[in-house]
Simulated assay, not measured.
Amino acid sequence: MENFKITWVQDGEPRESTVSFSRTAAETYLPDYQARPGASDVRIVEAPIQLVRSTRQSA
C-alpha cells in the first residue's frame, strides 16, 4: 500500500501533515487543507514508510 502526505505553505512556512494517508483519503482531505487561511501550494506527495523497531526494557 502506498502512503501519501499533504504538504503546503502556511504564511510562508512549509508544512507537512503529521499523518500519512491512502491516495483516496489524501484526495478527500485535500480541499480541507486548501481552504485553510493563509495556505498555498497544497500538494499530495508520496510518503516513504519508515519502520521503527521498538525496544522495550523490563522493569
Rank of each mutant, 00 (worst) to 15 (best):
T28C: 07
E2M: 13
A47K: 02
E16M: 12
A39I: 02
T55G: 11
R53D: 08
P14Y: 05
D41E: 14
S54K: 07
E27Q: 11
Q34H: 04
F4P: 04
R53L: 15
K5N: 12
P14F: 02
A59P: 13
R15G: 05
V45D: 09
K5F: 06
D32L: 00
P48M: 07
R23S: 09
R36P: 01
V52P: 07
F4S: 01
P31N: 05
L51M: 09
L30W: 04
Q34T: 04
I6N: 05
E2V: 09
E13H: 11
T55D: 08
T18M: 14
K5A: 15
L30Q: 03
S22N: 09
Q34G: 01
E13C: 11
R56Q: 08
T55N: 12
A39W: 03
I49R: 13
A39Q: 01
F21Y: 15
D32T: 00
D41Q: 06
E13P: 05
T7Q: 13
T7R: 11
S17G: 08
V19E: 12
V19T: 09
V19L: 11
Y29P: 03
S20Q: 13
G38W: 02
A39K: 02
N3P: 03
G38N: 06
A25L: 08
Q34C: 01
S22M: 09
A35E: 08
T7P: 05
P48T: 14
R23H: 08
A35T: 00
L51I: 08
L30N: 00
V52I: 04
V42G: 09
L30R: 06
S40R: 09
K5V: 11
S22T: 13
M1S: 15
I6Y: 10
V19A: 14
I6H: 06
S17K: 01
G38C: 04
W8F: 13
E16L: 15
S22R: 10
I6E: 11
V9C: 07
A59K: 12
T7S: 08
S20Y: 09
W8L: 13
Q50D: 07
Q57H: 15
A35I: 01
I44S: 05
Q57C: 13
P31K: 04
A47D: 05
D32I: 00
Q57M: 13
S54Q: 09
E46A: 11
V52E: 10
P48R: 10
